[in-house]
Design a protein around this nucleic acid. Structure first.
Lengths: 216, 216
DNA sequence: CGAACTTCGTGATTATTTTCACAATATAGT
DNA sequence: ACTATATTGTGAAAATAATCACGAAGTTCG
């Protein structure tokens, strides 16, 4: 990205992903063009939101006609970096880590799970979904050797910070953190948190405060 | 919540959950008081943010001394509805659904997984982590009979909307949606999305645009 | 070709959330 | 009791994000 016009909200990036998903479906059923209003309907967003979001990256539409599905698809793939492949390492092969190893979506997003790590001696050396599980001792060395760009942390809270540091020291630039802690990392490292407790607790708040006041 | 003073940002609620987690740890190691600055440090947030967030719900602190850990813990638990128990149903027992069934955090948050559903005939009738798996046909009836308050959707994208509607029609008030689609539900229903594709794609964007321009 | 209609792109406006700044209040030391 | 210090709570200001409003551009149809 060389165009330094404006800071782009992260929420915009996140929505681009949604647009691309929808556009990919439209392309699959051979729809040729779509308006911002229609795309908004399908994604539960407003037409202006769609146009503003796309507007950060250029002018893709045609007045009076809308967007070419094929062109928009290519543009979004380019913007989101799907034309490149990035290596991923999964750290922690418990219930959730295993589910992630089995997740078929990585490849679709241009991501390649090249390594998995655990502390459990019974798992080390085994293969899961085509990925060999190594000792967490080897994390640093393997991550740099394999040029891992994205590290996924699925270890208990107490171990997450240390894992994050090892990842960062091995050149990993992005972390997807499932552990319920805020990681402390240099600011050039991008961290995204998926925090189940927080989500559940938000729902619990909603139930306790906006609902019927029920519960058991 | 009858106190109609101000709309409370959802981000505030989500952070309360983080504060509570930290406060619980502090209580466990017998720390008696904590300042907003210290709590902010531990959660990677600013001191003002902490105070503002708490300020929506009352005055819990003591000038010059900070917050009593024990009192704040109780207050936060009350606010977040942890003093009540809510019933949860998990719809979809694939890789991720199974991992959720095994997740020990539900109980900790006052949540009780009372039912799980799947379409796979080989799973129906079996028990997973103490929860019986029923046919998805029974979802509506069981959800209302068991007074399910939170439905967790872990089915393929194409089935998610229908599942959501069944849940809503059975009196479910909150949905945690792992399927990569935006659900259409009445506005009094609270939906939280956990969208792995979106997270991964945001990271991919970051790598493609802010990083070294690498990739394979 | 021209009129009616559609749709985009974007500056201006509004809404929301975060940060600042500081008065008010409590504590601790002497 | 008094002073220096710590810390809260909150209006005001700043930053950020979403929505409005509308001109410009393109399409369709008679």
């Amino acid at each position: 990205m060389t165009n330094g016009k404006k800071r782009i909200p992260e929420s915009t990036i996140s929505r681009l992903s949604v647009y691309l998903r929808e556009i990919t479906e439209l392309a699959a059923v051979n729809i040729k063009t779509i308006s911002s209003a229609e795309l908004g309907d399908r994604t539960n967003l407003s037409d202006v939101q769609v146009r503003k979001d796309l507007g950060y990256f250029g002018q893709f539409g045609v007045s009076g006609a809308g967007y070419s599905v094929a062109e928009l698809k290519i543009a979004l793939e380019k913007i989101l970096g799907r034309d490149k492949t990035w290596n991923v390492a999964i750290v922690g092969v418990g219930h959730l880590g295993s589910a992630l190893l089995a997740y078929s979506g990585f490849r679709k997003h241009g991501l390649d799970v090249v390594a998995a790590f655990d502390t459990d001696i019974r798992k080390i050396g085994k293969e899961f979904e085509g990925v060999k599980i190594s000792s967490i001792e080897e994390l640093g060395q393997t991550a740099s050797k394999e040029k891992v760009a994205i590290g996924i942390i699925v270890v208990p809270a107490g171990e997450a910070q240390e894992v994050a540091e090892t990842l960062v020291n091995s050149g990993v630039e992005c972390i997807l953190n499932f552990a319920p802690v805020s990681l402390n990392v240099p600011e050039n490292i991008k961290v995204k948190n998926v925090d189940l407790s927080r989500e559940l607790e938000t729902l619990s708040y909603y139930l306790a405060n906006n609902g019927d006041g029920g519960g058991k």
